[in-house]
Design a protein around this nucleic acid. Structure first.
Length: 820
RNA sequence: GCCCGGAUGGCGGAAUGGUAGACGCGGCGGCCUCAAAAGCCGCUGUCCGAGAGGGCGUGCGGGUUCGACUCCCGCUCCGGGCACCA
């Protein structure tokens, strides 16, 4: 009888041992090849839920696997500890955000450790720590110095629920806040921005080479939204001294411009509006101001109310004709030049608008016959021969574009232009629980950065949270008042804090040397570990965090604060599927979490880990159904089966002859090594676990069949090694008891190709593509032999009924197909 | 509307164009036991058949191929992303 496996005792003991022995600590002078496996650092919302468990299990498998492969794996952990929930708790009368957050961190850290996931805890990092705040602020000032941070007045997204402005990336396409779900309002405010647009082109171009999920790359491409075209100026007929600038992707359709449109935010509106049109224009401006983005972007509603003639005209440079100048809210002030040439024949929106206002439509591209466009029922935006276009007539779209741009350039009217949808990153937040923006406002000197030696600017502790939701910093006299470091005058401190995505945009660089006192990033250390080799997290961060981090990595490198040649922070990205319960993503805010605690107690961390690895392909979402508990039981049963195998089976006789080289068991072992290794590399954890189960079944079958003890012993040893990354505690305990030594410091087994091929194989014999017989043949069977054996088969002869086969396809030794 | 994913037993899911359903869950049967639990062994897509065996079968309709879950064309449904960005 095997000793009972005391899950609680064994798991706690090994966890302590890995920590005490520093098994997973790495240092700069480590001679092993360095690598970096990282799970996205979490917002500490309390004890782990199954989503965390799944994420950290995947990461831990890779850390342990790569360690056994002989790498020095950097595996750090930290907490994205600033953020709104802590402040909301305080507003509701709870504890101070710091106490609240630190209590949640303790809970999460404890459940992560209980899972048996291994980290170099010396490197633990929390974004609300004074040290991290300081370096966050140092970076902010470097960005300011390099013109990458600036303050500007802009129409911004204001979330009434969160009582703060949001970045564009935090507003969903239906115009609601991604966090609170409230409808976002537009406000004109002075805010801090990071100039991410300076990197738009590079951020887009570099995507191609990244080993990331294609859909994440596509989402980023869409978000950056590059479009190529031309920008040119048009004279205003009634105001010859003024001109407007427009951007178009279709300069080839210039002869079809029958009107032009200014965005309601355009600075020239006042000047070009005639007295007679003043009222109509003002109504549009008023409407646009009042509108939320949702309404403004909605394609619903009558177009008649969405635009107005300004009374002025501009001159179409292509044909010299005056065309009416409108103002309409379908043109955005924040994209391109805030003004467009309108070509209704080749643009759907312009078509609708022209129809609504009775404006002329001139085709410049011949629509294909038998289309709504050919019947003058719709715009045609496709390719085709140009018409009504003088010197572009007959050209296709690409050639016409090229010629039009050259024409604009020669005439000094305009030039080639690339525009991006991406806007600068608005980082100000009117909240308390975030990193203070280290800026003073001086009546004499204006915007003055807090001197580096005065950093960090920390949050005052003695604050009062108002039920109005306003930031308490605005009312904290001690925080608010300061002295201008330049002129000594009384100055006022910036009370906005930074978006928490600023914190998460560089933490992975800080992890390389999180206690460096000289700089935010230790460049030598960062150079050694980065880019991250395996970055694992949810798809929810496809745009926000991952785009900002790519920007920050570049900006830091260019400013000399990070490795200059490091452009991409995450060489490989893996987005695990989420866990759903009741049809919705499992999350604390939805209140449908299944805490892992009871599983730790009942079956242990290993069984829960195995469940997450086995339940389905890691990229896919999984439903936490009633079956989950049964499968977890099954995983627990499987581990018990391995335990009995390791503790009941007699070990090999000392000095006995090595296991036979030709036996099936050894072949099964090496097949499993190859399969499990390849599966771990490609995140195929579910099939890796299946192969381990298969190997276990095979070992039992061999024991019952009386296979030599030495072969069985060898197989069990390899099984435990392969299992070690997935069920680290049981594998370690069983291995130590049976073989002595620490399984996690063993070398990862290597498959010997000699054992991957059997000498006898089952050959499939088909007649007309249907399996009719299976024959045992030598692996090296020749084509002629294979065909002969197949034709001799009783089953085949029955099927053929004496007829001669018309054709025989042989793929020895796997298959022969007889075509009758 | 546009762009991606996906659809396989009762369930989760496996399958470089070559035995569909690995592995597991659930179910059924057997062994062990006084009995149960645990464990071990076997069966488990579906229909016909006592059996041997055979028919059908990877969302639907076509096609390519000796051979298609896999490739191509056209749909249906589900999930996700984008959607006045000129």
């Amino acid at each position: 009888m095997s000793d009972a496996y005391d899950v609680q005792e064994v798991e706690a003991r090994w966890q302590r041992r890995w920590e005490d022995e520093g098994t997973y600590r790495v240092d700069l002078d480590d001679p092993r090849p360095a690598s970096y496996v990282l799970c996205m650092y979490p917002y500490p919302s309390g004890p782990a839920h199954q989503g965390h468990v799944r994420n950290y299990t995947f990461g831990d498998v890779l850390v342990r696997y790569r360690t056994m492969k002989g790498e020095a794996v950097l595996s750090p952990f930290g907490f994205d500890s600033f953020g709104l929930p802590a402040e909301n708790a305080a507003i509701k009368g709870g504890a101070h955000p710091r106490e609240y957050t630190e209590a949640r961190i303790a809970e999460l850290k404890s459940s992560v450790q209980r899972l048996g996931a291994v980290y170099d805890w010396r490197r633990e990092l929390r974004s609300h720590d004074p040290d991290y705040i300081k370096w966050n602020q140092v970076i902010f000032q470097a960005l300011l110095e390099h013109g990458l941070a600036y303050r500007a007045n802009a129409p911004v997204n204001w979330c009434p629920g969160c009582q703060t402005v949001l970045a564009n990336e935090q507003v969903l396409s239906d115009g609601t806040c991604e966090r609170s779900g409230d409808v976002v309002e537009r406000r004109d405010l002075e805010q801090w921005f990071f100039r991410i647009t300076r990197y738009a082109e590079e951020l887009l171009d570099a995507l191609d080479a990244l080993d990331w999920p294609e859909r994440v790359k596509t989402m980023q491409r869409n978000w950056i939204g590059r479009s190529e075209g031309a920008q040119f100026t048009m004279k205003i007929a009634e105001h010859p001294e003024q001109e407007i600038e427009v951007f178009t992707t279709r300069p080839d359709t210039g002869f079809g411009m029958t009107y032009a449109v200014l965005a309601p935010e355009h600075p020239l509106i006042d000047e070009v509006t005639t007295a007679g049109q003043r009222q109509a224009v003002d109504e549009i401006l008023e409407r646009a101001r009042r509108s939320t983005d949702v309404e403004r972007l909605s394609s619903e509603g009558t177009l008649e109310k969405r635009g107005a003639f300004t009374g002025s005209h501009c001159i179409n440079p292509f044909n010299g004709q005056p065309v009416p100048l409108f103002v309409a809210d379908y043109v955005l002030g924040s994209y391109g030049t805030g003004a467009i040439m309108a070509v209704p024949a080749e643009d759907e929106r312009d078509w609708d608008f022209a129809k609504a206002y009775g404006l002329p439509i001139v085709r410049t591209v011949e629509p294909p016959p038998d289309t709504p466009a050919a019947a003058d029922q719709a715009a045609y935006a496709g390719d085709g021969p140009h018409i009504n276009s003088d010197w572009m007539d007959g050209l296709d779209t690409a050639a016409a574009k090229q010629k039009a741009i050259e024409w604009l350039e020669h005439g000094g009217i305009g030039h080639r232009m690339v525009n991006y949808r991406l806007r600068d990153w608005l980082i100000s937040r009117q909240r308390y629980w975030g990193c203070p923006i280290p800026i003073l406002y001086c009546p004499n000197d204006g915007i003055v950065p807090v001197p580096t030696e005065d950093l960090p600017v920390l949050l005052p502790e003695d604050v009062e949270f108002r039920p109005t939701g306003e930031s308490p910093l605005r009312y904290h006299e001690g925080f608010l008042h300061a002295t201008c470091p330049r002129c000594g005058a009384p100055a006022v401190r910036e009370t906005d804090t930074m978006d928490t995505f600023v914190d998460s945009s560089w933490y992975f660089l800080r992890f390389a040397d999180p206690h460096d006192e000289a700089a935010p990033i230790n460049i030598a250390a960062a150079h050694k570990y980065l880019p991250v080799d395996r970055y694992i997290g949810g798809i929810t961060h496809a745009i926000l965090h991952l785009l900002y981090s790519r920007f920050y990595t570049r900006a830091l490198g260019d400013m000399g604060l990070g490795p200059k040649e490091l452009r991409e922070p995450f060489a490989n990205l893996f987005c695990q599927g989420m866990i759903r319960l009741g049809g919705r993503a499992m999350s604390k805010s939805r209140g449908n979490v299944v805490p892992p605690g009871e599983y730790f107690e009942r079956v242990g961390a290993d069984a829960l880990r195995l469940f997450h690895l086995f339940a389905g392909p890691p990229v896919e979402d999984i439903d936490w159904t009633d079956q989950a508990d049964e499968i977890i039981e099954g995983c627990s049963r499987y581990l018990a089966r391995v335990w009995r195998l390791a503790t009941d089976e007699p070990a090999a006789e000392p000095g006995a002859a090595p296991a036979g080289t030709a036996d099936d068991l050894r072949r099964a072992v090496h097949t499993a090594i190859a399969k499990v290794s390849a599966d771990i590399e490609r995140y195929g954890f579910n099939t890796a676990v299946a192969s381990l189960m298969e190997l276990t079944n095979t070992i039992y079958r061999h024991i019952h069949a009386g296979t030599r003890r030495e072969s069985v012993d060898e197989a069990i040893k390899t099984l435990l090694e392969l299992l070690a990354p997935m069920a680290p505690h049981l594998a370690a305990e069983a291995f130590e008891r049976r073989y002595g030594g620490h399984v996690h410091t063993q070398a990862w087994p290597v498959a010997d190709p000699a054992y991957l091929v059997a000498d006898q194989v089952t050959m499939i014999v088909q007649v007309n593509g249907k399996v009719r017989d299976r024959l045992e043949v030598a692996a090296g069977i020749t084509e002629e032999e294979a065909v002969e054996r197949a034709l001799q088969s009783e089953k085949v002869r029955e099927q053929l009924k004496g007829a001669e086969p018309r054709r025989v396809i042989a793929r020895p030794p796997k298959l022969v197909n007889v075509v009758a």
